[in-house]
Design a protein around this nucleic acid. Structure first.
Lengths: 121, 121
DNA sequence: GATATATTGAACCATATGGTTCAGTATTTA
DNA sequence: TAAATACTGAACCATATGGTTCAATATATC
């Protein structure tokens, strides 16, 4: 279970780690497109684009269907819900962690004040 | 500018695409840790863990400081704000795209009703 | 039927990734 | 000062990635 989720995360974050693939997702958000369309838009060979689409498809972010000789790509079933949730959770962790640091700093300041007073005594 | 952002995205999403590194981030969200701590926790050589930490550091997600012989790792300055925003924007695109599809389906249904009526006429 | 179009697969290339081992160096600690 | 600890760097390995070219296949179009 955890393993499944982890490898799914691996796949989706890896898919998002390439500018071309992020661009393809944005493009498909506007309109479906063929491999030729995408290859043209991103100045790449058909074969190269096909690979990117394959990666996105593996990650569930894109689905494709071939009708006649043209393969049409569209956004896939995955909406990055879990990924968004992971990042949100991380951000909360981060906040909590730095709040702790703030407390430490506050504590230090308090002690300084106390020390100051002691020295003056 | 765009390039900078894109390569930053490349780096952070790539950093997140590995289960060990996501684990390290979660761990550091709980407490700072040395390379030895992390290597132990994730059953890996020091050298291996050092590399993962290096990737996270490159991405700005972790900072490290060496005091004496031990290097302490903590969460870095980046909170994944832009990454969260990118994903949110994508999710909206996705929703809009599928709303469009819904409209098409609605339209088809409407036509069917009309056709049905026509046939019955 | 001939030609053009759209994709596909295999093979190749350079570089990156995720890991290891092994031999250092620097710092504590006994 | 000797031994233990913590890290570091170089070198290596297998596999993945991001791209290409070239040849083949399937489908449309003239």
């Amino acid at each position: 279970m955890v393993q499944y989720i982890q490898t799914r995360f691996d796949a989706s974050f890896a898919a998002l780690s390439d500018a071309t693939r992020r661009g393809v997702l944005e493009q498909l958000g506007r309109a479906d497109a063929s491999i030729t369309d995408l290859a043209g838009k991103f100045r790449m060979t058909l074969t190269g684009m096909k690979k990117h689409v394959g990666v996105l498809e593996q990650a569930g972010l894109v689905t494709t269907e071939k009708v006649g000789r043209v393969r049409t790509c569209k956004l896939g079933p995955r909406r990055l819900t879990e990924e968004a949730a992971w990042i949100e959770r991380y951000r909360q962790l981060w906040d909590a962690r730095f709040d702790e640091l703030d407390k430490v700093v506050e504590e230090l300041k308090r002690k300084e004040r106390v020390d100051g007073r002691r020295k003056r005594e």
